[in-house]
Simulated assay, not measured.
Amino acid sequence: MRRLLVPLALVLSLGGCGWLGRSGETSKPDNFQLHGYASVAGAAAGLPGTPCLAPASAPDIVAGAPVKAADAGGKVIAVTTLASGVLATASDGYRCNFAFELLNLSGSRPAYQIVVAERPPVSFETRAVREGRPAVVDVPASAVTGSPSPS
């Protein structure tokens, strides 16, 4: 009975990591999950860890906004969306952080470009994010410009 359990456990563990379903390949897949968040400066003060919204200076940073991972040439590799904002403190005041997770990225690329909403891409070295460092896309606070008052 014991002889049967060891091979069965091995087969089940390989199936769970995706290795079993990849016929014809000679090496284990190198895919990883990239974890990160868009961190918006200028959030209203409050209790860290509670829900928040990005300030008016970043109206495009909301739950459900698109997040794309692209290669160095700009080709989109994976897409996900931002989660709801969570309030955090930082040296520059309060921030509203919107988490994201990109799945099945290849570790063979040297870097990934992360695009949140339609903002400029931010580059992250694959090695760092593959080792568990979060990809933090900093969204600075900026003054909200209103329409000029009539003269």
Rank of each mutant, 00 (worst) to 15 (best):
M1A: 14
M1Y: 05
M1N: 08
L4K: 15
L5W: 14
V6G: 00
P7N: 13
L8C: 10
A9N: 12
S13Y: 07
L14N: 03
G15E: 08
G15Y: 07
W19L: 15
G21M: 02
R22W: 07
R22I: 01
S23W: 09
G24S: 11
E25R: 12
T26N: 10
T26E: 11
S27K: 14
K28W: 14
P29K: 05
F32H: 02
F32I: 04
F32W: 02
F32L: 04
L34A: 02
H35M: 10
A38V: 08
S39H: 10
V40Y: 06
V40S: 10
V40E: 07
V40H: 07
V40G: 07
A41R: 14
A43Q: 06
A44Q: 05
A45L: 03
L47G: 04
P48W: 04
P48G: 09
T50M: 02
T50G: 00
C52H: 00
L53D: 07
A56G: 06
S57G: 13
S57W: 09
S57N: 06
S57F: 11
A58G: 05
D60W: 13
D60M: 11
D60V: 12
V62R: 15
G64P: 08
G64Q: 05
P66Y: 08
P66C: 12
V67L: 02
K68D: 09
A69K: 07
A70D: 08
A70L: 12
A70M: 14
D71P: 00
A72L: 13
G73Y: 07
G74A: 11
G74P: 07
G74F: 11
K75V: 06
V79I: 15
T81K: 13
L82M: 01
G85C: 05
L87Y: 01
A88S: 13
T89W: 11
T89I: 15
G93F: 03
G93P: 03
Y94Q: 04
R95I: 13
A99W: 07
F100N: 07
F100Y: 14
E101R: 15
L103V: 09
L103W: 12
L103C: 01
L103I: 10
G107T: 04
S108T: 10
S108M: 05
Y112R: 01
I114V: 03
A117V: 03
A117D: 10
R119M: 11
P121Q: 10
P121Y: 08
P121R: 12
V122L: 11
S123T: 15
F124Y: 02
F124C: 00
F124S: 02
T126S: 03
T126W: 03
T126C: 00
R127P: 00
A128Q: 12
R130C: 06
R130I: 04
E131S: 05
E131K: 09
G132C: 01
R133Q: 13
R133M: 02
P134S: 08
A135C: 00
V136I: 14
V136T: 09
V137G: 02
V137Q: 05
D138E: 15
V139L: 06
P140M: 06
A141V: 10
A141Y: 15
A141N: 10
V144S: 04
T145G: 01
T145A: 06
G146R: 15
G146D: 08
P148V: 12
P148S: 10
P148N: 05
S149E: 13
S149D: 03
P150D: 05
P150C: 02
S151K: 13
